[in-house]
């Protein structure tokens, strides 16, 4: 089993784990963590695609690697915006309304 195959398994499992956290965890910050786990799983899949594309003297295809770098920065920006929203919600409404947000989330899913 090569490192790339193994990374493929990790990536797939990370997507599943993150999705589980995103769906089941009521706390917004945990949902953000879940989103980040899915994101890094997806990036790993790009990574094995890159590794399988090793050619021309490069140990990995540079194009998917560059896409992962772009993706990591975008994912960070997304986390920052999401965290700012969560904190603002707490400031404006306090934990009480967030709890009702949870219950409404639950009722809908």
């Amino acid at each position: 089993m090569t490192a790339a195959t193994l990374a493929g398994f990790i990536g797939s499992a990370l997507v599943g784990l993150g999705l589980y956290g995103l769906i089941t965890d009521p706390q917004p910050i945990r949902k953000i963590l879940g989103f980040n786990l899915i994101g890094s799983g997806v990036f790993l899949l790009f990574g094995i695609v890159a590794r399988k594309g090793a050619a021309a003297g490069f140990a990995a295809d540079p194009v998917p690697q560059a896409m992962v770098i772009t993706g990591i920065v975008v994912a960070f920006s997304a986390s920052a915006l999401a965290i700012a929203l969560v904190l603002r919600l707490y400031e404006v409404a306090g934990p009480v309304s967030l709890r009702s947000e949870h219950t409404s989330n639950k009722a809908e899913k």
Binding site: I38, L81, A82, L85, V86, L98, N105
Partner: peptide, 22 residues
């Protein structure tokens, strides 16, 4: 408008949208 209602709507929108993009 910074109301709790809209912030919570924006947060939910963001989570759906991010999940969609990923």
């Amino acid at each position: 408008d910074s109301r709790a209602e809209t912030i919570s709507a924006a947060l939910r929108y963001l989570l759906f949208a991010l999940c969609g993009s990923v």
